[in-house]
């Protein structure tokens, strides 16, 4: 099979890889770029464990081809912390015990980040609908929603302070 050569940016860094034309971006990220924080729960777009951003948009990486990433910006859970500091969402997920097994956590963090970038003050219902594409079997979502609520609050405060 002929490979496709792709140049893209992952978490801000330029990368290049060769992949078969029918290989999913999920497989590229996990198997070729060693970004195993991106999880596979279904491979069919139904669980959200593989959530990433593509040019800032939330997508299931299992539904995108590796070849389609040419020239685009990919964001994964590995790119969430800046320098030595965890993202507020990461901190709040730990603080609020929003994970049990943690397999869904990377996907939720990426989805929640996209939500808070668009809507800095979401209602409970907006949070629940924004995260409805991500399955969690352990928590009943209670503490996840609370972690997102408290993150939003902290981030709003941070913005005000830096203004």
């Amino acid at each position: 099979m002929n490979g496709v050569t792709v140049s893209a940016k992952v978490n801000g860094d330029a990368v290049q890889y060769v992949c078969p034309p029918d290989e999913s971006l999920l497989d590229v990220l996990r198997n070729r770029l060693n970004l195993t924080g991106v999880k596979e729960g279904c491979g069919t777009g139904d669980c959200g464990a593989c959530s990433i951003t593509l040019d800032g948009r939330l997508v299931c990486s299992c539904l995108v081809l590796g070849a389609e990433a040419e020239g685009r910006e990919i964001g994964t859970v590995e790119g969430l912390s800046e320098g030595g500091k965890l993202h507020t969402l990461q901190e709040q997920f730990i603080e609020k015990a929003a994970l049990q097994c943690g397999i869904c956590t990377p996907g939720f963090l990426v989805a929640a980040k996209v939500l808070l970038e668009r809507n800095s003050n979401p209602s409970e219902e907006e949070i629940r609908y924004a995260l409805a594409g991500n399955l969690c079997r352990c928590t009943g979502y209670d503490k996840i929603v609370r972690a997102v609520q408290s993150s939003a609050k902290i981030m709003r405060r941070g913005k005000k302070a830096s203004r």
Partner: peptide, 21 residues
């Protein structure tokens, strides 16, 4: 007491290694 879990950082950064990792 409600302390932070020791595997928390690994799990929110994607570093924790699961079966397929």
């Amino acid at each position: 007491t409600r302390v932070n879990r020791p595997d928390g950082v690994d799990k929110v950064t994607g570093r924790a290694k699961y079966g397929a990792d």
